[in-house]
Amino acid sequence: MLEHKLRRILENHPEILYGFADISYSPYAKMYRSALVFAVPYGKQLTLQTYREPDFDQSIQDARSVLDTVLAEIEALLRAEGAAYWIPPVAQTSEETLLAPFSFKYAAVHAGLGWIGKNDVMITERYGPRVRLSAVLIDSALPCGPVIMESRCPDDCVKCIDACPHKALHNVQWNIRSKRSEIIDYPLCNEKRSQFIAKHGRKNACGLCLAACPYGCEPET
């Protein structure tokens, strides 16, 4: 059974969180019935006390390396099984809309991996927001959910809000009906991060709102 074979692959990577999501909400549901969603922890679980931009970027690259390995194993299985699948790109495809073709965050919420924090990042109980998400859309009925419907962040927690150097976060609690613009001024965030390109050849990773989150990795005392 495909589900069990997928689980066996991921059981060999116990640090990875994963689940299956019903994507009937998505236009891609016309071609694929489910999504396998997983969250790979960053190489370093940084806090504000240990945060450095180069270290944060390296932790992202470390997670990407693990992700590439797991995706290769999953692809090999799906090809052998003759299953129709698609791996959506991670990055946004338009600097105008600032949207990716398929939202990993929204799929992760539907797979029960976590919720969206006040920093507009998916938060997990185990790692907080310090994870790299990916998804594989599969034309197979898989056991999905349960969907997480609302934030589990404390109402009075503003650590990520205070950590944002550009004041792009609105201190709004997420729920399943929330729009991104209600939580974050993402064009402002993108504009400030893009100023890094001229000097460094890429956008600033800027993980301060992630590092500040108390979930998963408590700040050092």
Rank of each mutant, 00 (worst) to 15 (best):
T47P: 03
M149P: 00
L17V: 05
E75Q: 15
E191N: 10
D162W: 03
V172G: 01
H110N: 11
V172H: 15
P219M: 14
A135E: 12
G207P: 00
Y32V: 09
E53H: 06
P89A: 03
P88R: 13
L17N: 05
G201S: 10
R177G: 03
E96P: 00
L98Y: 13
A80H: 13
A211E: 06
P41C: 00
L36A: 05
L99N: 04
C153W: 02
K167E: 15
C206S: 07
S140K: 12
S94D: 09
T69H: 14
K199M: 11
Y215H: 14
H200T: 10
R152H: 09
I183W: 08
P27Y: 11
E125I: 08
A35H: 04
P41G: 00
R79Q: 11
Q58F: 03
L36W: 03
E75M: 10
E182P: 01
E182Q: 15
S140Y: 11
N12D: 15
G19N: 03
R193T: 04
F102T: 10
Y18I: 06
A83Y: 04
L133Q: 06
L210D: 13
R33F: 00
R33E: 09
S24W: 01
H166T: 09
I176S: 10
G201Y: 06
Y18E: 08
T93W: 01
Y28P: 00
Y186Q: 08
R202N: 12
A35P: 10
I60P: 00
